[in-house]
């Protein structure tokens, strides 16, 4: 069973935290991931920085630009993640916590899609979120490669996605389904009543995957609200903002995660 399926089996509400690889410093990647794991995050979503991140708001755009300026690229990333699955005492995140890579298609294609999957699987990555991978391209070309390397592929759905398409994307996803809380780029603010209605609609579809809510989740209240109608939620921009100024992101990470979970 994949780590993602395993983590949802407990039934607890899942906290997935996004961080950008190579941010705030080039060598922050693994220390930040370890701090997240130790602080009680359930899933780590690691962003691979891209020069033109269309779906991202200002905070994550900036973190990507900083990471690129720091010298982050795929080779560096996989080198940094080489010992990721070592125990925390040795500097890794351990065997249990799922790690998902999030990024845009172009850098992945330049690395070579299959090479990328092989290297990701090799360091112990569990799944991918590629927002600009079209569904039919996935079915035609990429699904077989992902299956070969046992990587989950997580599709996004939005309040604008039709019932038929939600069901289709759910059937193609594994690990979980990423419910974008509102039609916006990351880091936006939306009225929760509308979000609630949408999440209830998703619940009524009897989807095969657990649902995590992302975009606009930023603190204890928004996390708990989302968890009422989903299996958990994803925090990105709010966390990136917290660590962007930090000389040692590890300390702030603990405070931040505790402020959400306690």
């Amino acid at each position: 069973m994949s780590r993602l399926s395993e983590v949802f089996k407990s039934g607890k509400k899942i906290l997935n935290i996004y961080c950008t690889a190579g941010f705030p410093r080039l060598d922050s990647t693994l220390p930040v991931m370890r701090a997240l794991q130790e602080s009680g995050a359930d899933i780590i979503e690691l962003g691979m920085p891209y020069s033109d991140p269309l779906a991202d708001g200002e905070t994550i755009q900036k973190s990507s630009a900083v990471a690129l300026a720091n010298g982050m690229n795929m080779q560096v990333l996989f080198e940094q993640l080489k010992n990721m699955r070592q125990s925390p005492s040795l500097g890794g995140v351990g065997e249990a916590i799922p790690v998902v890579l999030m990024g845009y298609m172009n850098p992945v294609l330049q690395y070579g899609f299959e090479n990328f999957c092989a290297d990701a699987a090799n360091v112990g990555v569990d799944g991918l979120i590629l927002p600009d991978l079209p569904q039919h391209e996935f079915e035609k070309t990429y699904r077989a490669i992902l299956e070969k390397y046992n990587l989950d592929l997580i599709f996004l759905v939005t309040p604008e996605t039709s019932e038929e398409r939600v069901k289709k994307l759910d059937s193609l996803s594994s690990g979980f389904l990423y419910a974008v809380s509102s039609s916006s780029t990351t880091g936006g603010e939306k009225d929760f009543n509308e979000v609630k209605e949408y999440l209830q609609r998703l619940q009524s579809y009897q989807l095969k995957n657990p649902v995590l809510v992302g975009f606009g989740i930023k603190d204890k209240k928004t996390f708990n609200d989302a968890c009422k109608y989903a299996n958990g939620a994803i925090i990105g921009s709010a966390y990136v903002k917290i660590i962007q100024q930090a000389p040692s992101p590890e300390v702030l990470t603990k405070c931040f995660i505790q402020s959400i979970l306690n």
Binding site: Y50, Y104, L109, D132
Partner: peptide, 21 residues
């Protein structure tokens, strides 16, 4: 450029070897 994806379609794109535009 090399084949790549920019602004929603696959075409020739001027980019670094890492796929940054």
């Amino acid at each position: 450029g090399k084949p790549g994806i920019l602004h929603g379609s696959k075409s020739f794109v001027m980019q670094t070897k890492d796929g940054q535009v």
